[in-house]
Amino acid sequence: MPGLEDLYREIILDHYRTPRNRGELPPPARMAEGHNPLCGDEIHVYLDVQGDTIVDVKISGQGCSISQSSASMMSAAVKGKNINDVLALVKRFKQMMSIEEENADTTGEIDTSIKLGDLEALQGVVKFPVRIKCATLAWNTLVQALESPER
């Protein structure tokens, strides 16, 4: 049986206690809302996209330590990044979470050379299948925000 230390790594607790990039961005920043219908976790992702770059990102909402720390780490990982690099990172992250993308051929190869850095701490979540949805909520919401028009 996997232990709690596999799930609640120090770096996860740190992001949960002091979340990065917390807040909102005013319009016209893009925004998407993600819900985990099973448990009621809620995440709002705000993006300021200039050209191909995510210039700024803010996160609001509430949820468990896994959903909130994943959101915080994600915000730190995508801020200032090129959108294509971000989409590649999303794929890489989902792969770590053992999520097989449907129609994988249209979404392209997963670049395994992409460094996950702090995000690696979330790997332990895979041993707790019911929590995988908590970890991926922010990432799915990020993709939705990228697909949304400016407000």
Binding site: L4, L7, C39, I66, Q68, R131
Partner: peptide, 18 residues
Amino acid sequence: HPHDVSQILDQENICVRA
């Protein structure tokens, strides 16, 4: 958070709903 509460309780086979 309630999810984390239920996760920790699960370590002792305590079944609660979050």
